[in-house]
């Protein structure tokens, strides 16, 4: 198992993490050893095994369609660093 530096950069970008050049190189080694460790699982034949998505078998049948929750506008935006007219104000995410 070997991971390329570009993959480290891509994963960092997807997670919105800033990774310095030097650190990225170190991460390649660290992630490599993690993947190598986990890669041991590949030695098993899992063809007839259903993927386990949840460690505990639980059944979920949901709730009725009732409105019984809701915060006030002040509770929702009150803790935001920036707000305007009861809305969150954020840096613009599209170009004009």
């Amino acid at each position: 198992m070997s991971i390329a530096k570009t993959e480290v950069e891509k994963v960092a970008r997807l997670a919105r993490l800033e990774v310095e050049e030097k650190r990225a190189e170190k991460l390649v080694d660290e992630l490599d050893s993690v993947l190598e460790y986990v890669g041991k699982l590949d030695e098993l034949d899992t063809d007839d095994v259903e993927p386990t998505t949840h460690p505990v078998a639980a059944e979920h049948t949901g709730r009725d369609d009732e409105v019984n929750e809701g915060l006030t506008v002040e509770q929702v935006v009150g803790h935001a660093p920036d707000q305007q007219d009861g809305q969150f104000r954020v840096p613009k995410v599209v170009d004009e």
């Binding site: 709730r63 369609d65 009732e66 409105v67 019984n68 929750e69 809701g70 915060l71 006030t72 506008v73 929702v76 935006v77 007219d85 009861g86 809305q87 969150f88």
Partner: peptide, 27 residues
């Protein structure tokens, strides 16, 4: 067209005041 949201009990009514129909989960 449900009354409440898919995973929380907040209202889905159209045209309400901004951020007035929000449950902690939705945030």
């Amino acid at each position: 067209d449900t009354a409440s949201k898919l995973f929380s009990g907040a209202s889905t009514k159209y045209g309400a005041e901004p951020n007035s129909q929000v449950a902690p989960l939705d945030m």
